[in-house]
């Protein structure tokens, strides 16, 4: 199982801040996780089609589509940052 966190405009779009996903043997990378979420959740699919695709973190470190995902990971999806 992994934990997925959504932030800011993406949290509002998804209608939730957090969810858990059971890892299957197909989900070994960020890219595969995104494919899985797009297939199972229309709000997430919509997000991926938009011009501003989300930024991604794994265990609170910026991640790439090729980054590995393992049991217990915390994956974050969020928009471009606007602090300062």
């Amino acid at each position: 199982m992994i934990t997925i966190l959504y932030f800011a405009s993406i949290r509002e779009h998804m209608g939730k801040a957090k969810e858990t996903v059971e890892l299957t043997e197909n989900i070994t990378t960020v890219e595969a996780l995104i494919r899985h979420l797009s297939e199972t959740n229309s709000a997430f699919n919509q997000l991926c089609q938009s011009a501003n695709s989300p930024l991604i973190s794994v265990n609170q470190v910026f991640a790439e589509p090729s980054s590995p995902i393992v049991f217990g990971d915390e994956v974050g999806f969020f928009p471009s940052m606007t602090g300062g």
Binding site: S9, G76, P79, S80, M81, T82, G83
Partner: peptide, 26 residues
């Protein structure tokens, strides 16, 4: 530090004005 903080630290601003509430874009 300020330059990197603005684009690489996970903060998001939501602005509320008399007209609306919206997330500020980078």
């Amino acid at each position: 530090i300020m330059d990197f903080l603005k684009s690489r630290a996970p903060f998001w601003k939501k602005q509320t004005s008399s007209a609306e509430s919206r997330w500020i874009e980078s």
